[in-house]
Design a protein around this nucleic acid. Structure first.
Lengths: 137, 137
DNA sequence: CACCTAAAGGACCATATTTGTCTTATTTAT
DNA sequence: ATAAATAAGACAAATATGGTCCTTTAGGTG
């Protein structure tokens, strides 16, 4: 239960790799994909979605590629995970009221809310810089 | 991310319903399914899997049905969830060493381990009795 | 301008998982 | 015996996952 998908794994590998490059360096998707061992076109989609929310910057054309959108210390693991896997919601019921017909009477809701909080706490507490540092040789 | 499946939802609804019956009462799958609004054959599978691990007891033949396998206060939400959704493992890497080729060097592992611990803590702290009580009118 | 490079976007597809159903045993009470 | 139930297993539709491939757009360079 609660497994990260490949997409999530790939996303983390990719952005951590970016964080390990010299600051300001622009990396080709082909280089990144090879370095972190992820199918290139798939990783491209992931990084494109990162670009949309600003955690990476992308440059088209000759000399283009990807780099971090802000310092690795200010990108949390939570942002990365939620960007590709969607918000952390252990149960559909946590969505806006009314989604769950059994709302109000359902005693399980507070439990999922607590689970959500704990997970978010952990993931908010870890930055890509942390991970990049730990992963270094 | 980390959503419970229908199966998980159904499982909780079903066992909480059992916990709300008078102790010792044997309920038909048809009754339970209607009461908790779950497809009967699907719920049957779920309760059968519960019977295998002992958290419910089943009786075949005339006068048969289902009841809790032990007091609701001694069945945790974690047991129920893990029974249907599998163990709580946010990342495949938490499986036995060697599953992840990047083992040892991967700095993300400790994070997932922490997430796992937090979630398990919460789910271990809630019993079916708690839920049954909260759900009562 | 022409051309090359590289990301962006969209359509598509194979596989796996989820969410069931249906049929055929087995078991048990009467 | 027979009827009442669960158990077990095969099957199927719908959805999600994990990609591929092709075309478009943007940016450098001679």
């Amino acid at each position: 239960m609660m497994e990260l998908t490949r997409k999530g794994e790939y996303a983390i590998r990719g952005i951590v790799h970016l964080a390990q490059l010299q600051p300001g360096k622009v990396a080709l998707i082909s280089e990144i994909a090879e370095a972190v061992d992820v199918p290139q076109t798939f990783l491209a989609k992931i990084l494109q979605s990162f670009a949309k929310i600003g955690i990476v910057k992308s440059f088209r054309g000759a000399g283009g590629g990807f780099m971090l959108g802000r310092p690795a210390a200010r990108i949390t693991l939570r942002e990365v995970v939620e960007a590709v896997e969607g918000p952390i919601l252990p149960n559909r019921c946590l969505l806006g009221a009314g989604t769950c017909e059994r709302d109000g009477t359902c005693g399980v809701h507070p439990v999922w809310r607590q689970v959500q909080q704990r997970v978010v706490e952990v993931l908010d507490g870890v930055t890509i810089e942390d991970l990049a540092a730990r992963d270094k040789p």
